[in-house]
Computed example of a mutant assay.
Amino acid sequence: MRLVHRPDRDSAATDERTLASDVDVARSRLAQARGLMFRRSVPDDYALVFPFGEAETRWLHMLFVPFAIDAVWLVDEEVTRVKRLAPFVGLARGKADAVVELPAGVADGVTVGDELRLRE
C-alpha cells in the first residue's frame, strides 16, 4: 500500500506523487492512542494513517515522540489542514475523518484542498 498526493482534487491522475510506500493503518483504539509514541524514528517513506468513522475535531500530540512529523487532516480524502509538529511538545487539532502522520518535510507542498489517497 502507498500514500499518494494529488495537488488538486480535479487534476489528472498523472499529477500524483507518492508520499509514502511503507504505510501502516491504525485501526484499533489502542493503535490510534499509541500512534508514533516510543519509536526512535520512522523511515523517510513511512506514513501512519488514522481512519475515523466521521469528520470531527481530531487532536494530535507529540508526547513521547522524539522526532518532528508532518500531520495532515483529511475529510473524504481532501486535505483540511497540514501542520509540522515539534518533538515532545507538538500539539494541534483539525477537522478530519482521517489523519496522516509523516516524517517532517514529506508533506512540503501539500496544501488545503489537495487530495491524499491510499493505493494498493
Rank of each mutant, 00 (worst) to 15 (best):
D8H: 13
G113M: 12
D114K: 05
F38H: 13
A47H: 06
P43S: 14
F50C: 04
A104K: 02
E16I: 00
Q32W: 06
S11W: 13
V112Q: 14
R29H: 07
P43I: 11
P66R: 06
R34Q: 15
L3T: 05
R119M: 06
P87S: 09
S11N: 07
L48V: 07
E56T: 13
R58V: 10
M62P: 08
A12I: 03
D76M: 10
V82R: 07
L3H: 05
R84N: 07
K83Q: 15
V110S: 00
V89M: 12
L91D: 03
E78L: 15
L36V: 11
T111F: 04
W73N: 05
A96V: 11
L30Y: 06
H5D: 08
R29Y: 07
H61M: 09
L102N: 02
F52D: 00
S21G: 15
A86F: 02
T14M: 06
R39S: 09
F38C: 04
V89W: 14
G35Y: 12
Y46Q: 03
D15V: 11
I69Q: 01
R2K: 15
A47P: 01
V110Q: 00
P43T: 06
L30D: 08
V82M: 03
T14Q: 13
S28G: 00
L19C: 07
L85Y: 01
S11Y: 10
L3S: 06
R9W: 13
P66T: 04
V112D: 06
L91C: 05
S11H: 12
R34N: 12
R117M: 10
G109F: 01
V23M: 02
K83R: 15
V112A: 12
W73P: 04
T57C: 09
K83S: 10
P43D: 14
L30W: 07
R81S: 12
G90Q: 05
A71G: 10
L19Y: 11
R40W: 08
A47I: 03
D22H: 15
G90L: 03
R27Y: 02
M62N: 08
L102E: 02
V42G: 03
T18A: 04
R6E: 08
R93D: 08
A68D: 06
A71M: 05
V23F: 08
V112T: 14
D22A: 14
L19P: 03
D114M: 01
D8C: 10
V75W: 04
V79Q: 02
T57Y: 03
S41F: 09
P7G: 10
P51V: 03
P7W: 01
A86T: 12
